[in-house]
Design a protein around this nucleic acid. Structure first.
Lengths: 193, 193
DNA sequence: GTCTATAAACGGATAGAC
DNA sequence: GTCTATCCGTTTATAGAC
């Protein structure tokens, strides 16, 4: 059965690679492992990618695009900063389950990239942190924000979200719905007066 | 200059290895890298350790012992749960700077261990999470706790703490003192009514 | 596009001299 | 306790047939 609608083989490879690397790390995932996981040989793989390092870079670009599309764009138009931040967290956690948003965990592996590739990825992550800080600044103007450091706090919020991809599994004894609600509430309670 | 007071070469190796592995991951740190970092050859290293895997295990045991000694023991006697939890977070973050507590990050690398080694480490981590949950249960009895899931919340708290070791560096633009205070306040505000 | 085969480098680990 | 030299399996990546 050849993939009918041209749904690229390419995508399957990147997705599988990303999943393996989230589990085992970049250095801990060999091209042989990946080849086996997609049902090919190593040589076959190299028809689709140019190098292991470049594949990591492409995956990270994809992850950041997904974040943009699934979290940043849908919330950009929300005027109320409290509602906007709440929705950003909600959509981000949702994306960890439904789309490939857990792949953004791999941004920790950017040490394996060239320095300019690495810098580009970092710029995108920092833009995202910047959106969290912006919502906090607006909340502060409204007098709704507790006294806190925006840099540190934005990091803490992001950690509770991405950290989920590190420890959550379906047999964790917590439903996705509950985890979602708990994560939003935890962070909002932490920052609001 | 031979190390005067018998301060073991051994310790320097483990410490250096832990630092490298926190930065680059277990699989991403070669014995050659480590040898260079401590100023020896690979062969020289193997006089001090039995295998790379066992070295990871020893480091994790050390990390968990430090957590016990620097965080768990000093707070065990605090009767008030709010004060106890506050002090646990404070001492843990302190330990990230002063002792080798960031090494506990490596518990994510326990997939590289034998399953019984891995289980032993996990048991210790879960005990620590259990202490956070216990403090929350006591706070709930006192009517001070917001409505929240203890399992998820304990994870979130721990993530904000250990996450610091992932992103903080001395040129981060935030003093250790401020980071400490902010992390305690963020988490306490998140859970208290 | 996918395969078999193989090159070239790197990985963990050991032997044996000093 | 540290070195040089080396073994051997694994890894990334390529060549060339189909």
């Amino acid at each position: 059965m050849p993939t009918p609608e041209g749904r690229a083989r390419n995508e399957e490879i990147y997705h599988t690679a990303a999943r393996l690397m989230v589990q085992r790390g970049y250095a801990g995932t060999s091209m042989g492992d990946l080849a086996k996981a997609v049902g090919m040989t190593k040589a076959g793989l190299y028809h689709h990618i140019s190098s292991k390092q470049d594949m990591l870079f492409q995956i990270l670009l994809y992850a950041m695009d997904e974040l943009e599309e699934k979290v940043i764009e849908p919330t950009g138009g929300i005027a109320d900063p409290e509602e906007r931040l709440r929705e950003m967290i909600r959509l981000h956690v949702c994306g960890l389950f439904e789309h490939g948003l857990e792949f953004s965990l791999l941004f920790q592996e950017r040490r394996h990239l060239d320095s300019d590739q690495s810098e580009l990825i970092w710029k995108k992550v920092d833009q995202y942190l910047g959106l969290i800080r912006k919502a906090m600044r607006e909340l502060k103007k409204q007098g709704k924000l507790r006294e806190l450091d925006p840099d540190v706090t934005a990091r803490h919020i992001l950690q509770t979200i991405t950290g989920i991809a590190r420890w959550y599994s379906d047999d964790a004894g917590v439903s996705q719905r509950r985890l979602l609600e708990q994560t939003v509430n935890f962070n909002m309670a932490a920052i609001l007066k």
